[in-house]
């Protein structure tokens, strides 16, 4: 099929004619803007993109993208996207989901897509609340949180999305922040460049039901001291002047000088350090990690399926109606 020449796009080429309907001040606006800008820079014809979502505030996303888009049903976007990618491996498949959509009702599909290393990019907008249903605690809500369905405080223990992705074998795992546009775009570009399943958790503010829930990590005045950016091959340094470092000891992660800092390795054999660092407290001395936790190469399922179909066809010859019907033992009746 003919495709458009890979021209140089502008952000506006990826803006659809639909009026954006998120609440004023929602973190989703910034993410939409960043995704449109980043997609324009890929140099891929825009008809090659399939943007697929589940249900929830974030899942309105495809309507605002001037690409092929599919707003599916709650939790099922990774499953549906799996069929899209297997049926046409040439497509650029991006899944937009939220903490309830991906980790609660759709948890099973998410972990299996990770396990299979489906070549798709999953952006999980984590605002630690159910927004579209008007504020119930989600699988990432902090314990004790008072919400519509937890008037005396939530008792649920939350998932750590990064830890879950690492455990399920995602070959690319990253975290970024809705308001840190440069970092966000950098992570999106790295996800795009990765062949295989890319999981990106985006810390996203819900102004209505969970406002400021990430301020202790993301506010301008604390950000430099409360975040450490995991950059493969680079030392773990942070602080306004990058004057502090982190190093892994056998039992701990501790603050040190930049010179003593551990060089971040995202493609080790086990991902053990990624798991250790993602489990840190958000209120301790050690900053909260963002950036690229894991980035490894392994075979994708969609490629494997396409190859097997080709190999079998090569070996057995292309099947026809004639060969289909006349296989096996037959006999004639006159």
């Amino acid at each position: 099929m003919a495709t458009t020449e890979a021209t140089s796009y502008k952000k506006n080429d990826f803006v659809s004619d639909q009026e954006v309907r998120w609440c004023p001040g929602c973190g989703d606006y910034a993410i939409l803007n960043a995704v449109q800008q980043t997609f324009a820079g890929f140099g891929i014809p825009k008809e090659q993109f399939a943007v697929i979502s589940g249900i929830g505030c974030s899942s309105r996303f495809p309507y605002y993208m001037n690409t092929f888009g599919f707003h599916t049903i709650h939790g099922r976007a990774p499953a549906l996207a799996t069929g899209v990618k297997i049926a046409n491996p040439n497509l650029e498949v991006w899944v937009i989901t939220g903490d309830g959509d991906a980790l609660s009702i759709g948890g099973n599909h998410l972990i299996h897509a990770m396990r299979r290393n489906m070549d798709m990019k999953v952006l999980l907008f984590n605002n630690r609340i159910y927004g579209l249903t008007k504020g119930q605690y989600s699988p990432t809500t902090v314990p004790g949180k008072v919400t519509g369905s937890s008037p005396f405080g939530s008792l649920d223990a939350p998932f750590n999305p990064i830890g879950l992705a690492l455990g399920a074998g995602a070959s690319f795992v990253a975290r970024t922040v809705d308001t840190q546009i440069k970092h966000l775009k950098g992570v999106l570009e790295a996800a795009h460049a990765h062949k295989g399943f890319a999981f990106v958790e985006i810390l996203q503010n819900c102004v209505i039901f969970n406002d400021k829930c990430f301020d202790h990590i993301t506010e301008k005045d604390v950000r430099d001291d409360r975040q450490v950016d995991l950059r493969p091959g680079q030392p773990l340094v942070f602080g306004k002047e990058l004057e502090k470092g982190l190093r892994f000891t056998p039992s701990d992660i501790e603050i040190c000088t930049p010179e003593e800092a551990t060089t971040w390795n995202a493609d080790g054999p086990t991902g053990a350090n990624a798991y250790r660092i993602c489990q840190g407290s958000e209120s301790g001395e050690v900053p909260v990690p963002i950036g690229i936790f894991r980035q490894v190469q392994r075979p994708t399922l969609d490629e494997g399926i396409a190859k097997q179909v080709n190999d079998v066809t090569e070996k057995l010859g292309e099947g026809t109606l004639e060969s289909l019907l006349n296989a096996g033992d037959t006999w004639d009746v006159s």
Binding site: T4, K46, G69, H71
Partner: peptide, 13 residues
């Protein structure tokens, strides 16, 4: 189907 130039559109439930 996706991949067809000029037919970019959105569907859903």
């Amino acid at each position: 189907i996706p991949g067809t130039p000029g037919l970019e559109h959105r569907v859903g439930g």
